[in-house]
Design a protein around this nucleic acid. Structure first.
Lengths: 243, 243
DNA sequence: TTTAAAAATTGGTACGACCCAATTATTAAA
DNA sequence: TTTAATAATTGGGTCGTACCAATTTTTAAA
């Protein structure tokens, strides 16, 4: 556990919430928490803000801080606490072995749109990497990624046949921690049906977007076509006003 | 514009970024901004944190604060700045008139699952509201909502035939500002195909989840089956570590 | 008893100080 | 010239204070 004050408060409050230590579904007020943890109110507020953004609690000025009832028995929600953006890590728990089959790997001249999305110069080239992802023997996703040569000049077929994100972290100590994603669905194409073993009436879910390095460099544009039963995106949405 | 210091900084920085006042794609350091705006560094940090969470900028300790290149000419992204959760408001810009056709409206005994999701007592009842949403004459979504009687005892067919969220805000000054959403896709059913004018090979996009009032009261469980061409969910994802 | 005013409670915003940690730039040594 | 040590820069975290604003509770008046 990180040794940050607010992180510790979060951890402790989560534990208490899960242990149902607040039958009224209401947390102690901020000043009381300040006293209890022997920290500044600023730190308490910080902790509570993070938890509010995660949807664990609701705050109401003048009234108090309340527990989101759904945070108990986290049944259908809160699967997307997020810890990694890569596919390899995201789908783990299933206790099935993820696999990668390389379908295509080449260097191409990016389209105008791709140039814009990855902020490339006219003479920059990109890798095109097309891979089939599987669990054991079951394919569940066709992934097409575009990575500028200049951000990863040393890419090889070997690297591309396993997790690129892991390689990045291992060798360059850089992490992909942010992405713009667009999520939608389409009827499956013939190719989808072949690769993902879909019937013609069954669709693909699509997650498409740009992945960034820590410093904001666009690292990859990726289109992921998923067997529809494997795409489920859970999210907590807060609207405007607040921050 | 709200008269909050950090909001003003955000507004001003956004304006400057859009005016391309930072050709190096790098913002001034926090201490300089503090000096420039004649505010405390805390307020600068707050502003920058909010902007970082929105994906407008990237911060890197020891190095500086950088502009997300994609925030310029907000082309395909940043459509989801979020301002309202309701359907009526979300799809406006299209300059087509949104319509509602009430398909079903009744009071039922909630399933066990629904009881759990809306945190109901065993003897609570809920409205079931099934509506078809249209743009002009084109149906694009079948919406089935469940609202506990006790949170809205006065619901009528008339209210339900237009925006419930607007009604809530008008009459009770309560707002729906938060939701858990689960986003996925399925092959269309016969009923979907009839209502949404879909071919049998065309899917529906599904957005399903729970909407909350300001104080955390679960207000509605809703399942929205959308014509696949109308479902596009854009989002900026940040991962773990940071907060 | 009911209603209205006042006070207390509770979260929100802002300030500024102090030190830490990651990165970059500079300087000194080899 | 190259390399290693050192300093400066830059964002991160914590503390504590002061005051504001929405809500709830209490008190006083009708």
């Amino acid at each position: 556990m990180a040794d940050l004050v607010y992180q510790n408060i979060i951890a402790d409050l989560k534990k208490a919430i899960n242990a149902e230590s607040f039958p009224s579904m209401k947390l102690p007020d901020e000043r009381t928490l300040t006293e209890h943890y022997q920290v500044s109110r600023s730190s308490v507020k910080r902790a509570l803000n993070v938890m509010a953004n995660q949807g664990i609690i609701f705050k109401k000025r003048g009234s108090g801080t309340f527990i989101n009832p759904l945070y108990l028995k986290g049944g259908s929600f809160f699967n997307y606490n997020g810890s990694n953006l890569g596919v390899t890590d995201s789908f783990k728990a299933e206790n099935r072995t993820p696999g990668i089959k390389l379908l295509d790997f080449q260097v191409i001249k990016p389209s105008a749109e791709l140039q814009r999305d990855l902020f490339l110069q006219p003479d920059d080239f990109v890798y095109e990497i097309k891979r089939l992802r599987l669990f054991d023997e079951d394919p569940f996703m066709i992934e097409t990624g575009f990575i500028p040569i200049k951000v990863m000049p040393e890419l090889t077929e070997k690297i591309v046949s396993s997790s690129i994100f892991n390689y990045l972290e291992m060798t360059k100590n850089q992490e992909v921690t942010r992405a713009f994603l667009s999520i939608f669905a389409e009827p499956s194409t013939r190719d989808d049906q072949m690769q993902l073993k879909l019937k013609s009436t069954e669709p693909v879910g699509i997650m498409e977007g740009i992945f960034f390095l820590d410093d904001g460099t666009p690292f990859e544009f990726s289109t992921m076509r998923l067997h529809y039963q494997y795409m489920k995106y859970n999210t907590f949405v807060t609207v405007s006003g607040r921050e």
